[in-house]
């Protein structure tokens, strides 16, 4: 079998008394594109945030690339990782947010250069060169000097993807990357994501774009109420959902 990138065993997460994740078992292989769909409040975004430790899990095991996320196991005991070690883990994982979260006081190219130069200690010249390559890859060579406020939503999201790629991550997480976009701008972002998938990037994508899931996804996961209701190849799940809850959801969004 293929190597595993993400392994989640019985992951639980609660915010106070609210249980958001109630036992998630999931495996994402290297090079796999997994799409997670489900109604809002189903815990799909929270699960994604747990993968890079933006949210801490309360139970179960979650590992990326063979390493536990946020913890270290020694002599059968779990130790919390220091901020520095968590930061080191996150370098392996790129994340793209629904609201882009570009740094508004930096130009497009500065946004992309920032982390490689500050975190990995790349020289300004190298960082800039790589940033320009990445911006070209997402089709924004002509916007390198623009501030985020001077870019459309679709352009901002493409800069955000370039920014995440600049750290050379082994895994990319997408948290509803097209939900905040005008309908006519969704295509350009999905196009970039398709290109990434074609290049063999491992991706976990929380999305409402069923067309993208069908076309690009290797696996489709349907979540509801903090559990995985159904999982399978996107074509099968979308064409022939087994679970009544999946059927109900798909009948509303398709």
């Amino acid at each position: 079998m293929t190597e595993l990138m993400v392994k989640s065993e019985n992951v639980h997460k609660n915010f106070g008394r609210l249980e958001v994740l109630r036992g998630i078992d999931l495996e994402v292989g290297v090079g796999e594109v997994m799409c997670i769909v489900g109604p809002s409040g189903s815990g799909k975004s929270t699960f994604l945030r747990c993968i890079n430790h933006l949210d801490k899990i309360n139970g179960g095991r979650l590992s990326v690339n063979g390493h536990l996320v946020g913890y270290e196991e020694r002599n059968g005991k779990l130790y919390e990782l220091r901020d520095k070690e968590v930061a080191a883990q996150r370098r392996e994982i790129g994340m793209v947010f629904q609201k882009f979260n570009l740094f508004p006081h930096m130009t497009a190219v500065q946004n992309v250069m920032e982390a490689p130069c500050r975190v990995k200690g790349k020289s300004k010249a190298d960082g800039r060169k790589r940033a320009l390559e990445l911006l070209e890859r997402v089709g924004l060579s002509d916007k390198i000097g623009n501030y985020p406020s001077q870019l459309s939503g679709g352009q901002q999201q493409r800069v955000a993807i370039a920014r995440a790629l600049a750290m050379d991550p082994a895994l990319m997480l997408f948290d509803e990357p097209t939900s905040a976009l005008d309908p006519e701008l969704v295509g350009e972002v999905l196009e970039v994501m398709k290109g990434l998938a074609a290049d063999g990037m491992t991706m976990v994508v929380v999305t409402h774009e069923m067309g993208f899931a069908r076309e690009v996804g290797d696996t489709l996961v349907f979540m509801d109420g903090g559990v995985i209701v159904e999982k399978g190849s996107p074509r099968e799940v979308l064409a022939n959902p087994q679970h009544p809850r999946t059927r109900e959801f798909l009948s509303k969004v398709l």
Binding site: L54, D83, A87, R91, N101, H105, E114, R163
Partner: peptide, 27 residues
């Protein structure tokens, strides 16, 4: 400053002092 800013920066692996100095304080 929107909390998404420090989230994005920490997702990039930046340390807390870096996030404060480079991302949060300038804004």
């Amino acid at each position: 400053v929107d909390s998404g800013q420090s989230e994005a920066a920490s997702a990039l692996g930046m340390s807390r002092p870096q996030i404060m100095r480079r991302v949060v304080l300038p804004q």
